[in-house]
């Protein structure tokens, strides 16, 4: 399959920088395995007094974007303090590269994990092996991905679909036997996330006139719902509002999406929360 890599990514896998191992490294992080198809070993030289990262080198087994992500990571951390480096998330690596194909997001996640692992090594923290942590369990056995990793990746990257989770973590991309479990984690994580106080639209009067209600429904759809759907290649249109019955029509990728009933209940939840708990949302697609 031909991937669409941008020029920056191409430049960094053609001419990778900071390749190798630092002999007197005081922080080393290793993630991935040869079975999974990619692996990264990051070594850092950190000034003990200032806690500034003075050098970083990597070794990578993997595809073009894995090599580019590794180079990017080393370039990003050199000169930063450990505390600053600890703030780097996979999305920062993606931004540094000017974007990665969706199917390659896991390469950036691997970079973030190697960095976390190296920092833990520097701090003298024993990296808690997931199998020893009673709260974590391996969900995807093909790629050794735990429930914690899936949950964290969903939260940090605002993931909404199974496909996105596979692109970011590889979970579910092998034999596929864990897909039900991943979908459950997704559902629970999204529910938990939505339970946290969301951005409120300004002034929500107690009793809405019909006109106000329609306006508020429109506003919520525009600001809160459509952006998420469009991001996934879908869309929806408000068809009608009759009393508390809201009729919408799904478009684009939402149409063929098997999770569309899930999406529909998500739309209803959002409208109930933002407008009125009495709303019933139905689709005019049938």
């Amino acid at each position: 399959m031909a991937w669409e890599y941008n020029e920056k990514v191409k430049e960094l896998y053609r001419n990778p920088k900071n390749v190798g191992e630092i002999e007197d490294a005081n922080a080393v992080g290793e993630v991935g395995s040869i079975v999974c198809g990619d692996a990264l070993k990051l070594s850092l030289k950190i000034d003990e007094d200032t806690e500034t990262i003075t050098d970083a080198k990597f070794q990578t087994f993997g595809c073009g974007s894995a090599i580019a992500s590794s180079t990017a990571l080393t370039q990003m951390v050199i000169g930063k303090t450990v505390e600053q480096a600890a703030q780097i998330k996979n999305q920062d690596i993606v931004d540094f590269l000017g974007g990665l194909p969706a199917e390659k997001m896991h390469c950036s996640v691997m970079g973030q994990e190697a960095l976390e692992s190296a920092i833990a090594d520097f701090r003298g923290l024993k990296v808690v092996h997931e199998e020893e942590d009673p709260d974590t369990a391996i969900v995807c056995h093909c790629f050794g991905v735990s429930n914690k990793k899936i949950e964290n990746t969903i939260l940090e990257n605002g993931l909404r679909t199974l496909e996105e989770i596979t692109n970011y973590t590889k979970a579910g991309g092998g034999c596929g036997s864990c897909i039900d479990e991943i979908e459950q984690i997704l559902e629970e994580t999204l529910a938990k996330q939505d339970a946290e106080p969301p951005l409120r639209l300004p002034d929500k009067p107690k009793k809405l006139t019909t006109l106000q209600k329609i306006k508020l429904i429109e506003e919520t759809i525009e600001k809160e719902i459509r952006p998420l759907l469009i991001k996934d290649g879908g869309d929806l249109e408000l068809i009608d509002v009759e009393g508390n019955r809201v009729v919408i029509e799904f478009k684009g990728r939402c149409l063929g999406c098997q999770a569309v009933t899930y999406t529909l209940s998500g739309v209803q939840d959002k409208l109930r929360e933002m407008v009125s708990p009495d709303l019933e949302v139905t689709t005019g697609n049938d």
Binding site: W3, Y13, R14, I34, D38, C63, G64, I67
Partner: peptide
């Protein structure tokens, strides 16, 4: 052994 196919293809393609 110990290298990844896509990376090889990209460099070959260059």
């Amino acid at each position: 052994e110990h290298v990844e196919g896509e990376a090889i293809l990209l460099m070959m393609s260059d």
